[in-house]
Simulated assay, not measured.
Amino acid sequence: MLLVALVTCAASIIGSLMAGLPVFSLFGALIIALIIGMLVQIPMRAWFTHAAAKHAEGVGNAAALISNKLLRLGIILLGFKLNLDVLFATGVKTIAVAAIIVTLTIAVTYLIARKLGVDEHLAILTAGGTGICGAAAVMGLSGSITMPKDEEKRGRDDEVMAVATVAVMGTVFALAEIALRPFLGLSDAQFGTMGGASLHEIAHAVAVGGSAGDAGMDAAIIMKLSRVLMLAPTAMIIGAWWARRHPQPGDGPRKVPIPWFMLGFLVASVAGTYLPFVAQFTDILVKAAYLVLGMAMAALGMNVDFKAIASRGRMAVLASFLASILLAGGAFLAAKLLF
């Protein structure tokens, strides 16, 4: 456990440092930490398997525990990043547009994925990551879904596949939007709004908005944070929907798991916005959130099954790609007509 904690902490720190570099900034610290975890699992597992099979199993169990527990803590701490005053100051329009975009994107992505034969769990995680805020949304939604014990390993593979899918799609569409900017006929603020409304990771929205100057950057961040605001209610709704479709043995027909960490996310947002003595520590708490989430992502990467990704992930990528095209088109229309 201690070794895995040290390795994941190092991966998270390295991911944060690399995310500050020009090229890597488009991927974001969480995605880099996940990739490091995926790479480091190969020598670690080989080393421990050679020493003793039980040690190799211990590495997997420790990584799973760290990923599960730190995920929830990281999501709660991420709530301090969400300044409600900034969002509400932009009016109901931005939040209403974000709610519509998130709802339609999740529904459309899920339906496309299911039509392509993607299983329900991977489909809903991919849909959530595409519709809300990338890796953090995938992890948040995963935490609200209860999987049977014998399917937990497959569930973790689904998390990695969904995270990798939205990371690739976000990067591709960020570059495409920057390239298409001269032909779109949007003002700087409208272009930033489009980026915030259509791209998956916060890093993607910041990169696109920043290419249009300060006005574009501000608009992208406000719209993107409006989508992040949808994470908590979406996780609760999807958690309830999943529990009704997949009741666990011994559960009553009305029993629905409540993702308490999402309530913590909302409480952190309120505290960071309206309590002055908390607000002064917001930057530190947000940095701690990304450190903890980076560790969770690296731990998740250490347990990835590469064969499962190769065999089951291709249709999820296609579903996210098709949905992302529709999302970009809808975001363009919304920015052009409403902002």
Rank of each mutant, 00 (worst) to 15 (best):
W241M: 12
R114I: 02
Q190T: 02
T234W: 08
Y274L: 03
G192K: 00
L300R: 00
M1R: 12
I32W: 03
L73F: 05
T146I: 06
V92C: 08
G91W: 07
A137Y: 08
M1N: 11
I237R: 02
F261D: 05
L77S: 09
K287T: 15
L6R: 02
G209I: 11
A167W: 08
M18I: 14
A135T: 10
I238D: 01
P247C: 06
G170H: 04
A96V: 01
Q41Y: 14
T165H: 05
E57W: 15
A167C: 12
L275D: 06
M147I: 11
E57S: 10
I221A: 02
D150S: 10
L77Y: 07
E120Y: 13
I237K: 04
L30W: 03
A215F: 02
T234E: 04
T94F: 07
T165S: 01
A176C: 11
D85W: 15
P233F: 12
L82T: 08
I75C: 01
G155D: 04
T49S: 13
L175P: 04
L291F: 15
P182C: 08
D214S: 15
G264A: 10
A220S: 02
T126M: 07
W241G: 09
G37L: 13
L180F: 00
V7I: 02
S142F: 14
S198C: 03
L327A: 04
P182T: 03
Q280D: 14
Y274R: 06
A189F: 13
T105R: 02
G185Q: 11
V286K: 05
I13V: 11
V160P: 04
I132C: 06
A296D: 01
S25W: 14
A197R: 04
I309A: 10
L2W: 14
L2H: 15
G330M: 07
A323C: 10
W260P: 05
I325P: 07
I32N: 03
A215M: 03
S226Y: 05
A33V: 03
G129S: 03
G329P: 02
L122P: 00
V92A: 14
T90F: 14
M262Y: 00
M147T: 09
A205F: 01
H200N: 10
F48L: 14
H121N: 05
A64I: 03
E120S: 08
G91D: 13
L337A: 09
M230L: 12
F332T: 10
G272P: 00
I284G: 10
H55V: 07
Q280H: 04
Q248T: 13
K336I: 14
A298G: 13
A220E: 07
A189C: 01
V160I: 07
L71C: 08
M147A: 13
D218P: 06
L82M: 06
A98K: 05
I35D: 08
T234P: 08
L225H: 10
F80K: 02
V228G: 00
W260A: 07
A29H: 13
V304F: 09
W242N: 05
L111Q: 04
F281I: 05
V208Y: 13
K81Y: 06
A331N: 05
Q190S: 11
T103I: 08
Q280W: 00
A310G: 08
V4D: 09
F80T: 08
V292I: 07
M236G: 06
P257M: 08
K69E: 15
A64F: 11
P43L: 02
A308E: 14
L87S: 09
A298S: 14
